[in-house]
């Protein structure tokens, strides 16, 4: 389990093989041809199914293109001009950002808390409980939308019945533009918490038992052990788990489409939903414009990620200096 989590840590990914010995061994075996043979499947497939579509999107975004099979004509930056003046695009960016800012920390911390409890091998029924939290992850979105309609129902839903006991409500979770985004975020967290939990469980496997026992022998209580042993060791994983969680969160769109279709009144129109809507859902499909939204969104996301990485690295360096 060391494996899974350390891995994507930027340093590991960036770093060259650490020992000269490895390279030497490799060199002796005249491996260079094999290296490229090994790389070939990924490079070829990745080129076909990720790089090529990315480039295509870039090209599409400069076209006036009203649907597959139809004529495409070059319009230059017209789609981008339209994009800058499109209030729905900016609104959708804001909604996406809000979703990430709210659900990612929630999932990461809740996942960690649960993982700490469920990681205890002596906890009765731990395996079953892990499964319980994991099952929503694999439930089909269509069925999730359907069930959650009941759960969040303002007239008869259990949440509102519980609220009415407290003298609150009824709250029209999905039907009111004030609450719909929060409701969708809640369901998103419900559905995907299991994955974050698995990430943390994997990360926890790397905390050496001896260290904990040593700390215990030194008289550290559970809280102190957590604070001084476990959490510091988990810190590197936090980065990668956050990144993975953010990536997953950006794919919230099918859940939104099923639950609210981006409504009511655009209140849940995340950018991916808007892209989808423009490309396939509109009365008049607009693949050129949808691609432009996609490209702009992609560029902004990558920028955001670069900034975040820099900030985190800076923070870490400052901590190390201290």
């Amino acid at each position: 389990m060391t494996s899974m989590s350390r891995t994507t840590e930027p340093r590991a990914a960036r770093g060259a093989p650490r020992s000269a010995g490895e390279v030497a061994v490799a060199k002796r075996r005249r491996p260079s041809l094999w290296i490229y043979v090994f790389l070939a499947p990924t490079v070829v497939l990745f080129g076909m199914y990720t790089v090529w579509p990315s480039i295509s999107s870039l090209v599409y975004s400069t076209l006036e293109w009203r649907g597959l099979g139809l004529e495409r004509s070059f319009t230059g930056l017209e789609n981008y001009r339209r994009l800058l003046a499109d209030p729905l695009f900016w609104k959708s960016l804001w909604i996406t950002l809000l979703i990430i800012v709210v659900t990612v920390p929630l999932r990461v911390t809740a996942g960690l808390l649960l993982a700490l409890v469920l990681n205890n091998p002596r906890l009765p029924l731990a395996g079953l409980l892990r499964t319980a939290f994991f099952v929503p992850v694999v439930a089909t979105t269509a069925i999730v939308g359907f069930v959650m309609g009941f759960v969040l129902d303002p007239s008869a839903g259990p949440i509102n019945e519980a609220l009415s006991i407290l003298g609150v409500g009824p709250v029209d979770f999905l039907g009111s533009s004030r609450t719909s985004l929060w409701a969708v975020m809640g369901v998103h967290v419900w559905k995907w918490l299991g994955v974050t939990l698995i990430y943390w469980l994997a990360a926890l496997q790397t905390v050496p038992r001896e260290l904990l026992e040593a700390a215990e022998t030194d008289g550290a209580g559970p809280a102190a052990r957590l604070r001084h042993v476990t959490l510091p060791l988990l810190r590197p994983f936090a980065v990668i788990i956050v990144v993975l969680t953010v990536i997953e969160t950006m794919q919230i769109f099918d859940l939104v489409v099923t639950m609210t279709g981006g409504g009511p009144f655009f209140s849940t129109l995340a950018t991916e939903v808007y892209i989808y809507d423009t490309a396939f859902g509109a009365a008049r499909p607009d693949l050129g414009y949808a691609s432009a939204i996609g490209v702009a969104f992609g560029v902004l996301t990558v920028l955001l990620m670069v900034v975040l990485t820099l900030v985190m690295r800076l923070a870490r360096r400052r901590q190390e200096e201290r």
Partner: peptide, 12 residues
């Protein structure tokens, strides 16, 4: 109006 209406499609 049934409050749930706001999130129903015709089938539901």
């Amino acid at each position: 109006m049934l409050p749930a209406s706001t999130s129903l499609d015709a089938r539901e």
